[in-house]
Design a binder for these strands. Structure first.
Length: 373
RNA sequence: GCCUCGGUAGUGCAGCGGCCUAGCACUGAGCCCUGUCGCGGCUUAAACCUGGGUUCAAAUCCCAGCCGAGGCG
């Protein structure tokens, strides 16, 4: 079985942007690329075949969610996620760290230095999560790329709170590494540090010094765009260039350009599928140059015979009209979610493919300018 | 034909003399969501069946009509 490897193909003069190839036991990934979320071992609304058709090279599955349901023993019985969900390409698994924050905000998680206690909504059970458990679970899940258990620090945390949280993330990073037993899985360490320059740099330095095969950058959403750029730069400055970097939870068009320019190799984000369910269509021709999206549920599309995106080559855009998809949403037909999610994922993969092409042709800055103005 | 009950935003309900500038839920219109949210949040639009009467004051009480549901013939 092939082991994990990262090879840089092309770099861009004056920028950190690069193309590369991540090799994993389940195949290669051309970077930079977008990673759709399959949180509960499914890309919401799509079959694995459809996910592959959109251009997906790798999926992100969540450890905490699959631990709660169906439970790790079920997946163990199948020999891992790949066989369980019928996806033979690479998989990465989130460590459950994000849920420390997202559930914590709802009072469903309490963080301690040693562990985190989750109060499950499913059945009122309490679950104690530790870095060791997260790694153990991820090894059973069998992902090609795994993440250290971290604490996603809310951006409104004070300097003192952020520092305390960061110490925990670092301690958990070391414990995650120590708990690792499988050699065929890559383990990424995660850089945190909230919105503080010194803490981000300190975190990057700390994580870079450990034996991780790659790095994740955490907690970058919700920032004003200017800060986003800065925080990303601080987070990456101390990381070695020869290892892959994943930007966790980011997928807005502008952020993808910013990330790639800064040298990020992979991105995961829920927006294409979440937007798909909310009736938002990603489009390069929608007139909204901030968000690159519009709402198909609006009245105006009721009898619109045009495709979702006139510039898009995806199956949905070739086969169906805005009027039809508008109708599916109005009628609450499940196909609405499938078609819109399919298109949205295709849109992001297409964008990333264009970025890869542009980097290799030396026209990345031009492409970015075309999109961002 | 008689009797009973009911007619309040698009839908379903609340209000039953002044506290109604009429409340709620869904729906509509619009905005928002970045390691998931078929969710949730915010803004906004929209109604007292008709006509008489009683009263200082009627969505509210009375009469007639119209409409709907049920009962009796």
């Amino acid at each position: 079985m092939a082991s994990f490897r990262f090879r840089i193909k092309t770099t861009v003069e004056g920028l950190a942007a690069r193309t590369g190839i991540i090799s994993t036991p389940h195949g290669k990934i051309l970077t930079p690329c977008f990673v759709p979320c399959a949180t509960q071992a499914a890309v919401k609304g799509l079959t694995p075949a459809q996910a592959e058709d959109t251009g997906s090279q790798i999926l992100m599955v969540n450890t905490y969610h699959t631990f709660l349901r169906p439970g790790i023993e079920v997946i163990r019985k199948f020999g891992g996620l790949h066989k369980f969900m019928g996806w033979n390409k690479p998989i990465m698994t989130d460590s459950g760290g994000f849920q420390v924050m997202s559930l914590g905000k709802q009072g469903q998680a309490t963080v301690h230095d040693e562990h985190t206690i989750f109060h499950s909504g499913h059945n009122n059970l309490k679950h104690t999560f530790t870095p060791e458990l997260s790694i153990q679970l991820q090894e059973v899940l069998g992902a090609d790329i795994t993440f250290a258990f971290d604490e996603c620090t809310p951006l409104d945390f004070s300097r003192a709170q952020t520092e305390e949280s960061l110490l925990r993330t670092h301690s958990w990073a070391e414990r995650s590494l120590a708990a690792k037993t499988r050699k065929d899985q890559a383990l990424y360490g995660i850089v945190q540090g909230g919105r503080f320059k010194e803490l981000r740099e300190k975190s990057a330095e700390f994580i870079a010094a450990r034996k991780f095969q790659g790095f994740g950058i955490g907690s970058l959403f919700g920032e004003p765009k200017r800060e986003f750029r800065d925080v990303l730069r601080w987070s990456m400055s101390g990381l070695p260039k020869d290892k892959p970097v994943h930007l966790l939870g980011i997928g807005a068009v502008e952020d993808l350009f910013t990330g790639v320019a800064a040298g990020v190799d992979t991105f995961d984000c829920v927006t294409p599928t979440r937007y798909g369910r909310l009736g938002y269509v990603l489009s390069s021709a929608c007139g909204n140059k901030q968000k690159w999206r519009y709402r198909i549920t609006k009245q105006g599309f009721k009898d619109d015979t045009k495709p979702l995106d006139k510039n898009c080559e995806c199956t949905v855009c070739k086969m169906w009209s805005r009027a039809y998809i508008h109708h599916l949403f109005r009628a609450n037909e499940l196909l609405a979610y499938t078609l819109t999610s399919y298109h949205n994922i295709y849109f992001l993969h297409e964008l990333m493919q264009n970025m890869r092409g542009a980097i290799e042709c030396g026209t990345f800055s031009k492409l970015r300018k075309q999109w961002m103005g």
